[in-house]
Computed example of a mutant assay.
Amino acid sequence: MTTTLLFDVDGTLIDSFPGIRHGFLLGLKDVGWDVPDEDFIRRIPGPPMPETMRSLGMSAAQVDQAMRAYSDYMSGEGWQRFEVYPGMDVLVERLAGEGYRVCTATSKSERFARAALERAGLLEHIDFLGAASNDGVRAKKVDVIRHVLETATPERPLMVGDRLHDFEGAAHFGIPSVAVTWGYGAAEEWELADYVARDAAELERIIREF
Rank of each mutant, 00 (worst) to 15 (best):
T2H: 10
T2W: 03
T3H: 11
T4E: 14
F7T: 14
D8Y: 01
D15A: 09
D15K: 02
G19I: 14
H22Y: 15
H22G: 01
F24K: 04
L25A: 03
L26A: 08
L26V: 10
L26T: 05
D30W: 04
G32S: 09
W33I: 04
P36L: 10
D37G: 14
E38C: 07
E38D: 15
E38F: 12
D39P: 00
F40G: 04
F40D: 04
R42C: 11
P45H: 04
P45I: 10
P47I: 13
P48F: 07
M49P: 01
M49W: 05
M49H: 04
M53K: 02
S59F: 00
A60H: 08
V63T: 09
D64H: 11
D64L: 12
Q65V: 09
A66S: 14
A69K: 08
S71V: 08
Y73A: 04
M74L: 11
S75V: 08
G78L: 00
W79E: 03
Q80S: 10
R81D: 07
E83C: 08
Y85H: 10
G87K: 08
D89V: 05
V90E: 14
V92A: 06
R94C: 08
A96L: 00
A96K: 00
Y100K: 04
Y100D: 10
R101D: 12
V102S: 10
T104E: 11
T106M: 07
K108R: 11
S109L: 04
A115D: 03
A115P: 02
L117V: 02
L117A: 00
L117R: 00
A120V: 13
L123M: 13
L123W: 12
H125S: 11
H125I: 02
H125Q: 08
I126D: 02
L129P: 03
A132F: 04
A132K: 02
D135Q: 07
G136A: 03
R138H: 00
A139H: 12
K140F: 09
K140L: 13
D143K: 02
I145H: 09
I145E: 13
H147P: 02
V148H: 05
V148Q: 06
L149G: 09
E150F: 09
T153S: 15
P154Q: 02
E155D: 15
E155K: 14
R156S: 14
P157V: 07
L158M: 01
L158Y: 02
G161R: 03
R163D: 06
H165I: 10
D166G: 01
D166R: 01
D166N: 00
D166V: 00
D166M: 00
F167G: 00
F173Q: 03
F173H: 08
G174E: 13
G174R: 10
S177P: 03
V178T: 04
A179L: 12
A179I: 13
W182Q: 01
G185A: 13
A186E: 11
A186H: 13
A186Q: 14
A187I: 15
A187T: 15
E189D: 07
E189H: 00
A193R: 00
Y195K: 01
V196C: 04
V196T: 15
A197Q: 01
R198E: 13
D199Q: 08
A200E: 14
A201P: 07
E202F: 03
L203S: 02
I207H: 01
R208L: 12
E209F: 00
E209H: 01
E209I: 00
F210Y: 15
